[in-house]
């Protein structure tokens, strides 16, 4: 289920924790699995749990608790916009509206071509840089004006 490369990355995480605490690596391991497979299927979660010698349901608890894990397929580009109050004061909600209109989808929807998924985000600890868009969980785009958003979408091939 998981590639050698992913397992190697997991091993590196496991090594950060005391010997009897392999489970500590589950969050990172689920991130790697999601990176590799695009989303976390039940089999992916079970594979991670198995690799870390933990009950599958315990891994599922983790995967379902933290909201950057995707328990269903998402588009190639998952864009998460923070709309929390500090961001909203500087256009966070308007940026989200702009994206919705531009992509023709609402929050938690994926474009028909499977390219984009839009998510509403909670505070990302970047309120001073509003509007903020997190791309595929990992790249944060700040000060997103309409032009910047157009540019970002254009760059998503």
């Amino acid at each position: 289920m998981l590639s050698e490369t992913t397992l190697k990355k997991i091993d590196r995480e496991v090594a950060k924790y005391p010997e009897a605490q392999k489970q500590s690596a589950v969050m990172a391991a689920l991130v790697f699995a999601q990176d590799e497979l695009g989303w976390l299927s039940k089999d992916a979660i079970a594979a991670v749990a198995d690799y870390l010698d933990m009950p599958a349901i315990a891994a599922f608890e983790v995967a379902s608790f933290y909201n950057m894990y995707d328990l269903a397929p998402v588009g190639k580009y998952k864009l998460t916009v923070c709309t929390n109050l500090p961001c909203a004061l500087s256009g966070g909600v308007h940026a989200a509206d702009y994206l919705k209109q531009k992509l023709g989808i609402d929050f938690n929807e994926t474009t028909a071509d499977g390219k984009f998924t839009l998510k509403e985000g909670e505070c990302m600890g970047a309120c001073g840089d509003a509007p903020v868009i997190l791309a595929n969980n990992k790249r944060m785009h700040c000060f997103m004006t309409p032009e910047e958003i157009d540019k970002l979408i254009g760059e998503c091939k």
């Binding site: 004061l89 500087s90 256009g91 909600v93 702009y98 840089d129 509003a130 700040c142 000060f143 309409p146």
Partner: peptide, 10 residues
Amino acid sequence: GSTFFTRNMG
């Protein structure tokens, strides 16, 4: 109040 449409932030 929002500056999204009007101004380059920062």
